[in-house]
């Protein structure tokens, strides 16, 4: 039986989760449009379909906690509080971007939000997350590090090295695997001898849990509980959230390796309409209220696109800045 929403969070926070998921989806769909227009270039990996993971998980963390992710991280940055205008400007390669146009889609970073980066080498963020957790412990800071990664990252050496290390040094890391079942075009059972990813942590004695990553409330509850537990015991825990990306790996991927039937099945589990229905059914929000939320998100993303379009390009001299401190 599904949890009644009011057992979990107050009404306005429940609606806020919907707003964040809708904003994320809207942002990504606008990115696709801007990519088609040639305003966004390079690699572009969209998050549509996976919103419940970023939104539920971020809601379960403290503002002081560090968050790191891979390269499908627009939503994680925005949900954390990054200004959609500056994120869009970064994707356009403009000087007003989050990283002055030098990072791009895959390298968002906002230290004021403790959003410690999108990393584009698969598995690169594992040891860096462990190191940030070390710094928190060493400096007696009350924060944990949430390390997001995909199913494709679990066969990198850094995955195993970092799980071992975090447990060995007793460091507060919450590992969150976003299992969307495909590493580009390779399905998880074709790359992992043990495809049930959360069970792979037993070699490091790290407790783990699997959660429905299409259900924002389920993700929130799992991450909230695990994050507080990591904070309390000062050791790593592991969550596997099963989810699905509605688009290809990147804009150059038509996604032909997935069947239409599979796609339809997951579309029927789309976290946005399903969660909206729960909000309506349980009387948390009216349709009019949700319409207003959606309109606000659309306006925000349109404003972000306009801001990115109008923003200046970086100066040529910028190439020589930030190589050294």
């Amino acid at each position: 039986m599904e949890t009644r929403l009011r057992m979990v969070l107050p009404d306005h926070e429940l609606v806020r989760l919907y707003e964040q998921m809708f904003l994320s989806r809207e942002f990504e769909e606008h990115c696709a449009e801007q990519y088609a227009k040639g305003n966004i270039t390079g690699f572009l990996h969209l998050y549509s379909g996976q919103e419940a993971v970023a939104v539920g998980a971020t809601a379960g963390l403290h503002k002081d906690d560090y968050i790191l992710s891979a390269y499908r991280e627009h939503a994680q940055a925005i949900v954390r509080g990054a200004d959609p205008k500056r994120v869009m400007a970064e994707l356009f390669g403009k000087a007003t971007g989050l990283c002055k146009g030098k990072g791009g889609s895959m390298h968002l970073f906002d230290p004021a939000l403790n959003f410690m980066g999108g990393y584009a080498i698969v598995g690169g963020q594992f040891p860096i997350s462990v190191g940030l957790a070390f710094s928190s412990k060493y400096r007696n800071e009350d924060r944990i590090t949430a390390c997001f990664f995909g199913d494709g990252a679990v066969n990198q050496g850094t995955f195993h090295e970092s799980l071992n290390w975090a447990q060995l040094w007793e460091l507060p890391v919450l590992f969150i695997c976003e299992n969307n079942f495909y590493g580009i075009g390779t399905e998880v059972h074709r790359s992992s001898a043990l495809a049930s990813i959360h069970r792979r942590t037993c070699g490091y004695d790290i407790p783990s849990e699997k959660v429905d990553g299409m259900d924002v409330i389920a993700v929130y509850k799992a991450v909230k509980y695990a994050a507080e537990k990591v904070r309390e015991i000062g050791r790593p825990l592991f969550i596997e959230a099963t989810t699905y990306r509605f688009r290809g790996h990147s804009m150059s991927d038509p996604g032909k390796y997935r069947s239409a039937a599979e796609h339809e099945l997951w579309k029927s589990r789309d976290p946005l309409p399903n969660y909206a229905k729960r909000l309506l059914d349980e009387g948390i929000a009216t349709r009019e209220a949700l319409d207003a939320v959606e309109a606000r998100c659309r306006a925000s993303v349109e404003e972000a696109v306009a801001f990115a379009e109008e923003s200046p390009w970086p100066e040529d001299s910028e190439v020589w800045e930030d190589i050294y401190v």
């Binding site: 860096i128 462990v130 190191g131 940030l132 070390f134 060493y138 090295e161």
Partner: peptide, 28 residues
């Protein structure tokens, strides 16, 4: 032992953990 630490034989992670720690205000 808080400041002088033996590590596993995991060279890539020895450096990566130092990178993260440095970003967090430690000087490894």
């Amino acid at each position: 032992e808080e400041r002088v630490k033996d590590t596993p034989i995991s060279e890539n992670t020895i450096i990566g953990v130092a990178v993260g720690a440095a970003m967090g205000g430690v000087r490894p």
